[in-house]
Each structure stands twice: as structure tokens, then as C-alpha cells.
């Protein structure tokens, strides 16, 4: 009898846990206490039931014969005859028509799925950057080259589109003599300020980490690393394309403005992407 006393105690613990939970719900709000009481309520009963089954049920081991799964040949051929009876199979033309009608019906029923989203069109190739668009921070403040500290980084947007996901850009300022940008971009870096799309060309995460001492942008998602001085070419990790650079100049009143949209699509590569 002694060895099964715990089974009785388990059910008692369960009741205490359940009642405790009811009371505690009314007076307290700690998730920890709720979890413990629910654990006791369920666990007590669980131990009790399992103990009952394993210690107090002396049931015999039984042997059940396994009948073969497959049906007899006769039953099988009867079934096949039933399925393939003449009334169905003789009408070859009707069968084909029914099949064709099912296929067209499927297409008709599937077509409303196209309402789920617009056609991509040019939207993957374009952002909101336009020639002359002012470069502003998240709050809409326009930026001068002097507002970016040396070796500093700032997330910017085209004026009027603050926070717009597709147009997010980082401006980084480094010593102009360290820059080694690709040909034709020499005048895209006023006062050593360079602007790149903030969307990783690998899987689209915001490339938010700047290692100032190495002048590298690092994507926190998959560790793609881009060398800022050479125009954000990928130097490590899974990204294969450079981050597109935003052509940027200083307007007559001294603010940074875009000279146009990014020359390449921003963000992760997609099927049918236009590349040079």
C-alpha cells in the first residue's frame, strides 16, 4: 500500500493547484505564479493517472492477429468492375469533355486570386528619389554635409517620404581621399558624404551596422559586409551585388539633394531583374 500513496497525493496536489489558480486569478497577476499553479494542477493529475495506470492496473498482455491489409482478388475485381462499369467508361467523349470542363472550371475558380495584389510593374526598379529631392532625416530635417559627423552614419529619406521603406538610404561621411568610387561617380560624394540604399541586396534587411574603423557596412541579418570606400561592394557574406549608390550633390543653399533615383534596383535581387 505504501508504494501507491503518492498516487493519492498526486490527485490531492492537483486539486490544491487548481483551487489555488482560481483564487490567485482573482487576487494576483503574476504569470509565474499562474504557470506554477497550472503546472501543479495538470502535473498532479498527470502523475496520478499515470501512476494508476502503471502501478494499479494489472492487465494482461494480449496478442492481436494481424489480418492482411489487401483485399481478396475477387473483392478487388468486383470493386474495379463497379468503378469502371460501362455506363461510365463507354462514354469516351463525355469523359474527355468532363475532364476539360473541370480544368476550365479550375482556372475560373482560381482567377480571383489575382485580386490579392497589384502587378509589380516598375515598382521593384524604382524608389521615391527624384532629381533635386532633398535629403532629410526621419523627422524631415534637411541635411547639410556639415550635419553628418566624420565617420558618422545617418538614415535619410527623400523629403516628403520620411520613413518610406523602399527609399531608405544611409549617408556616411569619410575622408574624401579614402574614397575609391567606381568611374563616373567622382562627383557623387560632396565633402566625402556618400549615400547608399539601406536595403541589403541579399534578403532586404536594413544594413544598419557601420564599422567605422574598417569603413564597412554590415547587415545584422546575414552578416553581408560592404566596403563603403569602393562604393559598397560586397566583401563578405551572402550578398552578391553592391548596395546601389544614390547620386548626390549640394544645392545652391547648401543642402544635400539627390541628382536622381538609384541607378540600379534596390533591395534583394528578384527574378527578371534588369542588370547591365
Amino acid at each position: 500500500m505504501k508504494s501507491v500513496r503518492w498516487i493519492f497525493a498526486s490527485f490531492f496536489v492537483s486539486m490544491v493547484g487548481s483551487l489555488g489558480l482560481v483564487v490567485y486569478y482573482l487576487i494576483g497577476e503574476s504569470a509565474q505564479v499562474e504557470g506554477i499553479l497550472l503546472g501543479l494542477a495538470l502535473g498532479g493529475m498527470g502523475f496520478g493517472v499515470v501512476g494508476w495506470a502503471t502501478r494499479l492496473m494489472d492487465v494482461p498482455t494480449v496478442v492481436e492477429e494481424r489480418e492482411p491489409l489487401e483485399s481478396s482478388d475477387a473483392a478487388m475485381s468486383q470493386m474495379e468492375g463497379m468503378v469502371g462499369q460501362d455506363a461510365v467508361t463507354r462514354r469516351k467523349m463525355l469523359l474527355r469533355l468532363a475532364g476539360g470542363a473541370s480544368a476550365t472550371l479550375g482556372a475560373a475558380l482560381a482567377i480571383p486570386a489575382l485580386s490579392l495584389g497589384p502587378r509589380p510593374g516598375q515598382s521593384l526598379e524604382e524608389t521615391k528619389w527624384t532629381p533635386g529631392a532633398r535629403i532629410v532625416d526621419r523627422l524631415g530635417n534637411p541635411q547639410r554635409p556639415g550635419d553628418i559627423p566624420l565617420n558618422g552614419i545617418k538614415t535619410v529619406f527623400p523629403s516628403g517620404f520620411e520613413g518610406e521603406a523602399d527609399s531608405q538610404t544611409v549617408v556616411i561621411k569619410i575622408e574624401p581621399e579614402l574614397l575609391d568610387l567606381p568611374e563616373g561617380r567622382e562627383d557623387w560624394a560632396p565633402d566625402g558624404c556618400v549615400a547608399f540604399s539601406k536595403i541589403c541586396t541579399h534578403a532586404g534587411c536594413p544594413v544598419g551596422l557601420y564599422r567605422a574603423e574598417a569603413r564597412q557596412l554590415l547587415c545584422p541579418c546575414h552578416q553581408s559586409t560592404f566596403d563603403v570606400t569602393t562604393g559598397c561592394t560586397p566583401v563578405f557574406g551572402p550578398a552578391a551585388r553592391p548596395l546601389p549608390q544614390l547620386p548626390m550633390e549640394v544645392d545652391e543653399v547648401g543642402f544635400l539633394v539627390a541628382m536622381g533615383d538609384f541607378p540600379e534596383p534596390v533591395g534583394p535581387s528578384f527574378w527578371n531583374m534588369e542588370t547591365e
Partner: peptide, 18 residues
């Protein structure tokens, strides 16, 4: 046994969740 296992699974998850 199975019913008890269900309760014990629930108990373990309740403790984890809490």
C-alpha cells in the same frame, strides 16, 4: 497512460510558459 501523458505535457508547458 496517454491521458496522463497529455496532462504531463500540459504541466511541462504550463511551467515553461509561466
Amino acid at each position: 497512460k496517454s491521458f496522463g501523458l497529455m496532462l504531463l505535457t500540459g504541466a511541462a508547458l504550463a511551467l515553461l510558459g509561466g
